[in-house]
Simulated assay, not measured.
Amino acid sequence: MIHYLLRRLLVSLLLIAFVSLISFALVFASGNPAARLAGEAGTAADAANLMTQYGFDQPIVMQYLKWLGGAFRGHFGDSLYFHRPVGELLAQHFALTARLGAMAMLLALAVAIPLGVAAGRWKGSWVDKLALTLASLGQAMPPFCLAFLLIIVFSVQRTWLPASGFDTWRHYLMPTATLAVFAMPAIIRLMRSEMDTVLRSDYIRTARAMGLVERKVVLKYALRNALRPTVSLAAAQMGALLAGSVVVETVFAINGAGQLAWISILRGDFPTIQALILVFSLFYIVLTMCADIANGWLDPRVRTQG
């Protein structure tokens, strides 16, 4: 297990190094950043002053190492639009997005896993048809459409829930449900497929032939192996929830990292954009590594496959 963990850690570190390089290089992808900062009304002298002020006149390798060293300490410079340290903005906004994504994923797993297990166990039954119908509806409906529909029903017509903000537990319900519905279809389908496959395997037939109770066969033996690919999918879905939260946060007026990313892109705030790309990528890499570790614990065969 130790060798497996070390391999996964090494792969994650290499991915982090690659993502940091991409995040830094994006600033220079569309030309001279100093000229963009100076704007259309800026002169060549203004651009030259900005080159010196932000260190763009230094060798590119030195700029990257300086930025990377600051990033490891949580110092990403100052926001060009908000005029505040980027680290403070990330701490303020990313906490809301992470909280929203975690609640949405917990809700999605709490609904999708039991539903997928039941659909795989009783394939072709009404439970199976219900699970596939819900998965199809969730996959077909864009998150912003569901968000507006929830607002119309629960905030406009019934006035039961607040339509914007993120202050009380009632503010959490509609955004969490919107993101959870976005994550559920893939988990339901995969869990259904894996349960159906596992329940047809030889060791399950052997367990049943030995007279074990069906509930024990399903929950203790089949579910453990069926969960392995679902764990990996859940990690990927969690990363997608965080990265794609900009739409939901905009609809519900939640001042999270998604909203911060949208404003930073519109205003050309490249220090904030760099930091957001790096933080979102780090979060995704860490989630994937945790999923790999969980899979190694669930299935010892994974630890010997590299």
Rank of each mutant, 00 (worst) to 15 (best):
residue 219 L to F: 11
residue 25 A to G: 10
residue 98 A to E: 05
residue 165 G to T: 07
residue 148 F to D: 00
residue 65 L to S: 10
residue 254 I to L: 12
residue 237 Q to V: 04
residue 221 Y to E: 05
residue 198 V to Q: 06
residue 143 P to K: 13
residue 120 G to E: 06
residue 8 R to D: 10
residue 143 P to N: 15
residue 284 Y to K: 04
residue 304 T to Y: 09
residue 217 V to Q: 02
residue 225 N to E: 08
residue 150 L to T: 08
residue 117 V to F: 00
residue 185 P to K: 01
residue 162 P to G: 10
residue 11 V to Y: 13
residue 137 L to G: 09
residue 109 L to Y: 02
residue 306 G to R: 06
residue 232 S to M: 03
residue 1 M to Q: 04
residue 42 G to Q: 06
residue 224 R to W: 11
residue 6 L to R: 15
residue 293 I to Q: 00
residue 149 L to M: 14
residue 306 G to W: 05
residue 17 A to G: 12
residue 161 L to R: 06
residue 229 P to G: 01
residue 174 M to T: 08
residue 249 E to M: 12
residue 215 R to M: 04
residue 83 H to W: 05
residue 190 L to R: 08
residue 243 A to F: 14
residue 35 A to T: 13
residue 25 A to D: 04
residue 120 G to H: 11
residue 136 S to D: 00
residue 108 A to R: 03
residue 135 A to L: 07
residue 80 L to A: 03
residue 210 M to G: 00
residue 279 V to I: 15
residue 38 A to T: 09
residue 39 G to F: 05
residue 179 L to P: 07
residue 90 L to W: 13
residue 48 A to R: 14
residue 246 V to S: 14
residue 24 F to E: 15
residue 233 L to R: 05
residue 23 S to Y: 12
residue 294 A to R: 01
residue 272 T to E: 01
residue 170 R to K: 14
residue 265 I to M: 00
residue 102 A to Y: 06
residue 296 G to H: 06
residue 256 G to I: 07
residue 96 L to C: 11
residue 9 L to P: 03
residue 40 E to K: 03
residue 1 M to K: 09
residue 80 L to T: 06
residue 74 G to P: 05
residue 71 A to G: 12
residue 283 F to T: 13
residue 43 T to Q: 07
residue 124 G to Y: 09
residue 217 V to G: 07
residue 76 F to V: 00
residue 205 R to N: 03
residue 161 L to I: 01
